[in-house]
Amino acid sequence: MVEILVCFKHVIDETELKIDRGNNKINFEGAKTKISDDDKNAIEEAIRIKEKNGGSVTALCVGSADAKKSMKEALAMGCDRGRLLVDPAFQDSDAITTASIISQAIKKKIPKFDLVITATGSTDALTGIVGPSLGESLGIPQITFASKIAVSANKVTVDRSVEEGLETVECEFPVLITVSREINQPRFPTLIQIMSAGKKELLEWNAQALEIDPLTVGKQGSKIETNALNVPKSARKRIIFEGKPEDAAKQLAEAMFKEGLVK
């Protein structure tokens, strides 16, 4: 029996963003939201471990009320219960502060657990901070960039890839693991699972319920501030050859030589 906590982020679907070339800004209008891609791998892995070893999966998400939609999807995939950490005071928290909110929720409300699983990063902010910071806040060991997890009795054996190759490490519970995308292929919930997800327990916890001082979170509780979003400028030459493909290719070959690209 393994008690698993899995954390995910509710994000704007980055593939739906439109770029306003005129003012070099991103247009968020009408963009859909989703569970951050890699977090689905984290959820999938948590569910697979439960299916194999018994136990339960609790999904945690810091987000807005709109995140309920993603939480229902996590429940439909197979998480047993959802915990939404939602409070206006949490808005604009930086990644380390977000990790501190999750950490406080776990310490306060779910002190007994074996495994915490997160992704290595989210598709929106891509900081990769929340997992490692959460492990540190909880004061438990952590294993990052896992590509394979095996659970036996009271410990995990994990493959993780680093620059020089593959490491195999082992750790007793409790432990936090961040998983890489390659670890699994997330499932699509069936219609029946989607329907029955509504019956699963979904609780909302605010700052008061978690005994979090609002001054320690959100913008004023964060060290990092994000000021502006711009579209990266492309400084490419954009010299385009048209006409007969054969002629254009010859012109290209000449240009490549002039640039000293071919030797």
Binding site: R236, K237, I240, A249, A255
Partner: peptide, 19 residues
């Protein structure tokens, strides 16, 4: 073509062997 320095607009099946 917005993100390239040099581009060939054309069928790759003709352009690649010529290049």
């Amino acid at each position: 073509f917005q993100e390239c320095d040099y581009g060939v607009v054309g069928d790759l099946y003709a352009a690649v062997p010529t290049l």
